[in-house]
């Protein structure tokens, strides 16, 4: 028995160690106290990264949730053609984020991509320009992650007892009303889970941004994880990079604990990186 405990313990302590060691790793061998912190928190780029991350978090959540919900409800139907559609919806999940980033980067190429051949003026844009880069990547995020969340909603909808709808039908409730007063309330738990995953997940979007924009042009898409990476592994300022890590970890932890409390579903399932 103790053997199991010890055997499992070492990697467990490893996890904790990974999560704690950043305090020591800060300011590499030399102890600089809070210098890194004060420098980072007054740094324009860092503040900009925080702002961008918040935008990404809120916008992708706001866009993905209704789409996934609608699709999930739609996929839960038993008709044959919907089953076929569901199989196709699943396709983005087969690609790694890096692969998705590359396809889209090629597709939105202003000279040779998809839109360069469509003779509609306003579609021929430079989609990775300073103003459009962020919306473009957020669209790609939606493309990549909606399938996963709609799977969650599909599973949620399937668990709603059919009798509730039958009762509503007898009462003469319109489909629209049924949707709002049965489907949505019954999906409460799924909505919270999916939202938690999206919001915390937004802190970890890295691959897509890295492949598509590398944070550019300028700092237009330099969200927190990218900023952390560039600060640490491109500018070799690991101390400052670790500060951003701590911000990320604290925000992630607070966010999932808060959402967890709000939902009252004593479960903490909130980590998801780049499926």
């Amino acid at each position: 028995m103790a053997f199991f405990g010890i055997f499992a313990l070492i990697p467990l302590v490893g996890v904790v160690y990974f999560s704690m060691v950043k305090w020591n790793g800060m300011g590499t061998p030399q102890w600089v106290g809070f210098d890194n912190w004060s420098a980072s928190l007054t740094d324009k780029t860092t503040l900009n990264a925080i702002k961008l991350s918040l935008i990404v978090m809120v916008v992708t959540w706001g866009v993905q949730t209704p789409i996934s919900l609608l699709l999930g409800v739609f996929m839960a139907g038993r008709q044959r053609y919907r089953a076929v559609l569901s199989v196709l919806y699943f396709l983005p999940l087969l690609f790694s984020s890096a692969a998705i980033g590359i396809i889209f980067k090629s597709m939105v190429d202003p000279n040779f991509g998809l839109f360069s051949h469509i003779p509609v003026r306003w579609l021929q844009q430079s989609y990775l320009s300073p103003t459009l880069a962020l919306p473009t990547v957020m669209f790609v995020i939606t493309w990549a992650f909606v399938p996963f969340h709609s799977l969650l909603y599909q599973a949620g909808v399937r668990q709603i007892p059919q009798t509730m709808y039958e009762a509503a039908m007898i009462d003469g409730a319109s489909p629209w009303k049924q949707f709002w007063s049965i489907t949505i309330p019954q999906l409460k738990y799924t909505i919270v889970t999916s939202s938690t995953l999206q919001l915390v997940g937004a802190l970890t979007y890295f691959d897509l941004f890295y492949v598509m924009t590398q944070g550019g042009p300028g700092d237009a898409t330099r969200i927190l994880p990218l900023h952390m990476y560039i600060t640490g592994f491109k500018s070799f300022d690991y101390g400052r990079s670790a500060v951003i890590s701590v911000i990320l970890a604290v925000v992630g932890l607070t966010l999932s604990l808060t959402l967890n409390k709000l939902s009252g579903t004593g479960k903490m399932e909130s980590q998801q990186e780049g499926i």
Binding site: K22, G25, P225, M228, F233, S245, V246, A249, G252, M268
Partner: peptide, 16 residues
Amino acid sequence: LGLAIPAQATIVPLYY
């Protein structure tokens, strides 16, 4: 508790 911490956040100490 480990569930709520993004893996990315530990990348510097991990690298070290």
